[in-house]
C-alpha cells in the first residue's frame, strides 16, 4: 500500500468541503456545537477521529504539522497520527510549537504562546458540557438555544459541596464570548486562561459525537465560577525536575516502587527547548550542545 492510493489527507474532497463548512459555521458562532457527518476513520473512536477529520480538512500541502498527546510529541497517539498525515498528505512535520502551522492536540494547550496564522485542533471525547446532569440531547440543545446555563453551576456547586472547593480539574466549563457554554475538551484547567484572547484559531472535533465547534482568534473565554469560589488555574506545586520551569503544567512520574517520583513538564517541546537553552532542573542534567 502506498500513499498515492489515498486522496490528499485521506478524506475525499466532498467530505473535506462538508467539514470545512461545519468549521466555518463554528467560527461564525463561537462555542456553538455544529453537527457534521463524521466519517469512519482508520482508527478507533476515542483515538482522535474528530480531531483527525478537522486536521484533514484544514491541511494544505504547504502546512507544517505538529501532533501532541497530553503535551508530548512522542506518545503512541501523537506518533501514529503524525505518521498518518505524513503518509496520506505528505506534509512536513515538526515537534517545535512555533514552527507548526497546524497543531493537533489531545488534552493540552502548548506552553509556548501561539501566534496568528496557527490552528490548534483539539480532540474531543464528549462535546456537551451539560451532559453530566442532563442526559437528553433535545433538552441540552434547548438549554443552549435559550442560554439556560444554571445547570452548569449546579455541577460546580456539587463539587464545592463534596470537596470544599471546585474539584473539577480538567474539561472545566467555559463561556465563550458571553454566549455559549463550551467544554474545552479534557485539557487541565491550568490551560483554560490560554483559551481566551488567543491569536490562533482553535477548532474542536468530536468524531464519535459528530460535533465541531470553534473559538476564533482573540475571543473572550471565561471559566465559570462562583463569586466566593473563584476560578483558579492550578498545577502541581513544583518546578520541573528536568528544566526547572516554575510556570509550566507538570506530569507526575513514578520512578521506582519505593515512592520515588519526579515532576516534569507535560509539554515535551517546551521542556526540551528550555533545557537546550541551558535551564536545568532539580534532577536534570545539562543537555549536550546546550549553551
Amino acid at each position: 500500500m502506498t500513499a498515492q492510493d489515498y486522496n490528499f489527507a485521506y478524506l475525499d474532497e466532498q467530505t473535506k468541503r462538508m467539514i470545512r463548512r461545519a468549521i466555518l459555521k463554528g467560527i461564525a458562532v463561537p462555542g456553538y456545537q455544529v453537527p457534521f457527518a463524521s466519517r469512519e476513520m482508520p482508527m478507533p473512536y476515542g483515538w482522535g477521529t474528530g480531531g483527525v477529520q478537522v486536521t484533514a480538512a484544514c491541511l494544505t500541502p504547504d502546512d507544517t504539522l505538529k501532533v501532541i498527546d497530553q503535551g508530548a510529541d512522542d506518545t503512541t497517539n501523537a506518533v501514529s497520527i503524525r505518521k498518518f498525515f505524513q503518509r496520506t498528505a505528505g506534509v512536513a512535520v515538526t515537534e517545535a510549537t512555533l514552527d507548526a502551522t497546524i497543531i493537533q492536540t489531545r488534552h493540552r494547550i502548548p506552553e509556548a504562546a501561539l501566534t496568528e496564522g496557527q490552528i490548534l485542533v483539539y480532540q474531543v471525547p464528549i462535546p456537551e458540557p451539560l451532559r453530566f446532569l442532563e442526559p437528553r440531547e433535545t433538552e441540552t440543545r434547548k438549554m443552549h438555544e435559550l442560554e439556560e446555563y444554571g445547570l452548569m453551576h449546579v455541577k460546580l456547586y456539587e463539587d464545592i459541596a463534596r470537596h470544599g472547593t471546585i474539584a473539577t480539574a480538567y474539561a472545566y466549563p467555559v463561556k465563550v464570548e458571553g454566549r455559549y457554554v463550551m467544554d474545552p475538551s479534557p485539557i487541565p484547567k491550568f490551560d483554560n486562561p490560554k483559551l481566551s484572547g488567543s491569536p490562533a484559531i482553535q477548532l474542536f472535533g468530536a468524531g464519535r459525537e459528530q460535533r465541531i465547534y470553534a473559538v476564533p482568534p482573540y475571543t473572550h473565554v471565561v471559566s465559570l465560577d462562583f463569586e466566593d469560589h473563584p476560578f483558579v488555574a492550578s498545577k502541581a506545586p513544583h518546578d520541573c525536575d528536568l528544566c526547572g520551569a516554575a510556570e509550566s503544567y507538570l506530569d507526575e512520574v513514578i520512578t521506582d516502587d519505593q515512592g520515588g517520583r519526579m515532576f516534569v513538564c507535560s509539554d515535551t517541546d517546551f521542556c526540551r527547548t528550555r533545557r537546550e537553552a541551558g535551564h536545568v532542573g532539580h534532577l536534570g542534567v545539562p543537555v549536550q550542545g546546550g549553551v
Binding site: Y157, E158, D228
Partner: peptide, 15 residues
C-alpha cells in the same frame, strides 16, 4: 444542589 438549581438558573453566583 436540587434546591439551589432554580436560584442558579436565575443568576445566583454566590455559593
Amino acid at each position: 444542589g436540587n434546591v439551589g438549581e432554580r436560584l442558579m438558573a436565575i443568576g445566583a453566583r454566590h455559593y
